[in-house]
Amino acid sequence: MANRCFLNSIAQVSCQKPLSDEWFDSPYIYEEKYVRAQEPDTKGLIVPSEARRMSKILKRTVTTAITALNNSDVKQPDAIITGTGMGCMENSEKFLIDISRFGENCLKPTLFMQSTHNTISSLIAIILKCHGYNNTYSHKGISFESALFDAWLQIKSGLIRNALIGANDEVTPFMDLVLERTHPEYSFVSETSMSAVLVNSNLPSNICEVFEVKLFHRPELEEIADSLKRETDEVLILGVNGNPINDKPYGDLLKHLDYLPQTLQYKNIFGDNFSASAMAFYVGAKILEKQSIPTFLQWQGNLSSGNIENVTILNHSDSTVWSLIRLKKEALCGN
């Protein structure tokens, strides 16, 4: 796979200020355990007549997708690939409530059409009139990495030149109640919509190189540690959240390293949900772009004061599936 894969632009909607980097200097800090996303201003990005039929997650998704494309060198992507753990949850809930109230008669067509997981990728394609490869991955907490891995492999192998990727999850109040039971390890729950444009060209406008993407199914921790040992990473972003159930696998993994990496957290700022790791990707890209690390992201080790060349993101879903994403600064900008 001779081709290289670069991150050209990225945009987010979360519990921080939408479509903005302001969180980097002055993040919103929440006391609550569950916070919904800050809704973006869709004016100029979504036609009002189209917006009225979209649920919150669809508006957020289209907003980040259009913003990422507008900020990129790509106008029409070769592929649209997204990940989502739960899909359009709000519409699914309304649709199920309607079924219980009205039986299988009198069901609203819009809720039916927009309650599936692949609504998200397909809606972006409809708006962009993009007839290229379109796929949605729904693999719980590893959905984003699965979408990224697909795009990365296709770009590396020359099947596509660029891709619009993303991850989206909404957490309704009911879903939060369910998560309290199914995922007691979540300490701060919020929502995520992240879109990014990947390209195969080494452009000056690129943010960083997506150097490596790996997925591990039920791995031995040594196997992941070996992947890290190849070069001493200056920055390691982990999905830690302060809850011992969630954090133990990361602690166990670090014991296998023969050096002490600088480890960062991000869930204290962006919260947990099945697409949370997409925000780690976003945070890693912004750290490389700005060449600084906000102190509130520090988890263990001293903050680097020199150049930041590598950011590695490690995530696990229920300790069974792990992902490793390595972003590199050194190889970009037409060097």
Binding site: F102, K108, M113
Partner: peptide, 17 residues
């Protein structure tokens, strides 16, 4: 109002419900 065919389906459901 500039409604379309999906809106027509929504109106049919409205009248029935």
């Amino acid at each position: 109002l500039g409604l379309d065919s999906i809106d027509a389906l929504e109106l049919i459901v409205l009248l029935e419900r």
